[in-house]
């Protein structure tokens, strides 16, 4: 992965992190977290840890679903 791609995906990850930190709405936060994951994933694959990438991409939505369980109740 060359510098341009790294910069692009790094930018995506950073944008996800910053927006997840700044957005006040829970759903917006969760979506930004999805962006963060999307930015991080190419770095894992680029290293050649494909098994880790598969596992992480399956576990990440589970964590989001856990959070959704309480978000639904709180956002009245």
């Amino acid at each position: 992965m060359n510098l341009i791609l790294q910069a692009a995906f790094g930018l995506i990850a950073l944008a996800g992190a910053v927006s997840a930190a700044l957005i006040r709405d829970s759903y917006g936060k969760l979506i930004s977290l999805g962006i963060l994951v999307g930015g991080v994933m190419p770095f894992i694959v680029d290293r050649g840890y494909l098994d880790v990438a598969i596992a992480v991409s399956l576990i990440a939505p589970i964590a989001t679903i856990f959070v959704l369980m309480v978000v639904r109740r709180a956002e009245v």
């Binding site: 950073l14 992190a17 936060k29 309480v70």
Partner: peptide, 26 residues
């Protein structure tokens, strides 16, 4: 960024903090 966002969370609700906790993890 993640630690800052958890430490000085806005709005200060449990859920916001819980979601922000994922950022430093990544």
């Amino acid at each position: 960024i993640g630690v800052l966002s958890v430490a000085f969370v806005r709005p200060k609700t449990y859920i916001a903090r819980l979601i922000n906790l994922e950022i430093p993890a990544w």
